[in-house]
Design a protein around this nucleic acid. Structure first.
Length: 374
DNA sequence: AACACGTGGGC
DNA sequence: TGCCCAAGTGT
């Protein structure tokens, strides 16, 4: 037996052992989640409904499981099928998504459902390539749906998988440059028989054991083949590129209140930050030092009273808004605006930053949409 | 390739 | 408190 053959065989056995250890761990320790089918059922030939898988994967993009759960339940209950969602009112979808963040996901969700109905006869395509052509579905989501719902041996790489692989191989290349290398490693690891369970096993491992800080290596099913553990430095991986500085912006927000408590709202443009969501009138949000606060930008002349400031941190900048309130008589809303009565306010497509503004102006006006942490 | 795009929780 | 992070995608 030549050294070459010996090395190759050992290598393949290692790979198989890694996947097997992970799947065995997953059988015992998998998380039970509303959108998931238990591994045993999957092996008995059941496959999770692609609609549920797709909806959950879109919601889970950059979003925690605990935040997603209640939204997933509500949206599934209201629109149980792609067809129902395709026929939904787009604004109702935005309202249902309000508070979850990354609102382009909600816009694309609706478009994607329509495309599945119009161009795929109401059935999600079953290949990565076709899935990726749908709005809102990128590399990760296409691979996840293909693997989980259709049993395809796709390389599912999310933040969890990146961390697990970077540690397993002690990859020194910083993210995101290391992505291609990680994807290749995962592709070689995927077992033909249980690709969906394998993907979810990797993600569960990353979420519960191989965590960003203080990983529980002692409980890890693949600790013996982990290079980062051998280095006694699991937390050093993945190496990440330094992040850009976060600038500040400021502006003014105007809460007009009628005698019946109704608040004047308007719709933001479809594209860009908080696209398609609702808001109270505001000035433009500009870099600090140019005096964007003050009532110059008020929607109409009135006795605008200061209600202090709120701050809200977005992904790429921190916003400070000076909040003003004016109590006004009944009057028609300006073009493009409407009055929202207290009973309707909670149902509006208001992003969290706007709920903060309204709360500052009218304490108790908005019911917290907090998802109970669990 | 780099940046825009939300929010809330953990430490 | 402030920073990091969470099942990424579109441009």
């Amino acid at each position: 037996m030549t050294p070459t053959i010996t090395a190759r065989k050992t290598h393949e056995e290692d790979r198989g052992a890694t996947a097997a250890a992970l799947l065995s761990w997953y059988d015992r320790h998998h998380r039970r989640l509303p959108w998931r089918l238990p591994p045993r059922e999957v092996r008995n030939g059941a496959s999770p409904d692609p609609y549920r898988v797709w909806l959950s994967e879109i919601m889970l993009q950059q979003t925690t499981v605990s935040a997603v759960k209640p939204y997933f339940e509500r949206i599934m209950a209201r629109w149980p099928t792609v067809e129902a969602l395709a026929n939904a009112d787009a604004d109702d979808v935005m309202k249902a998504w309000a508070g979850l963040g990354y609102y382009s996901r909600a816009r694309n969700l609706k478009k994607c459902a329509e495309t599945v109905m119009d161009r795929h006869g109401g059935a999600f395509p079953d290949t990565e390539e076709e899935l990726k052509r749908l709005p809102g579905i990128g590399d990760y989501t296409a691979a996840a749906i293909a693997a989980i719902s259709f049993g395809r041996p796709a390389a599912v790489v999310d933040g969890n998988v990146e961390r697990v692989i970077a540690r397993l191989h002690a990859i020194e290349t910083p993210l995101p440059a290391a992505k291609a290398e990680i994807r290749h490693i995962v592709q070689r690891l995927v077992p033909e028989d249980r690709p969906g369970d394998f993907a979810q096993a990797m993600m569960d491992l990353g979420a519960t054991i191989c965590t960003p800080r203080s990983p529980s290596c002692i409980l890890c099913p693949v600790r013996d083949s982990c290079a980062a553990r051998a280095l006694s430095a699991p937390e050093r991986f993945p190496v990440k590129a330094p992040k850009a500085e976060k600038p500040s912006r400021q502006g003014a927000a105007f809460v007009a209140v009628r005698p019946d408590g109704a608040v004047m709202l308007r719709r933001r443009p479809e594209k860009g930050l908080l696209g398609g969501m609702s808001e109270v009138p505001t000035s433009s949000w500009t870099a600090r030092r140019d005096g964007a606060s003050g009532t110059d930008a008020a929607p109409f002349p009135a006795e605008w009273k200061s209600r202090g400031t709120i701050t809200h941190v977005f992904t790429h900048f921190a916003l400070t808004l000076s909040v003003y309130r004016a109590d006004v008589e009944h009057r028609p809303a300006p073009a493009g605006h409407w009055w929202s009565k207290p009973a309707d306010l909670d149902g509006e497509a208001l992003p969290t930053v706007m709920r903060k503004v309204i709360e500052a102006a009218i304490p108790g006006a908005t019911k917290a949409r907090r998802t109970s942490k669990k």
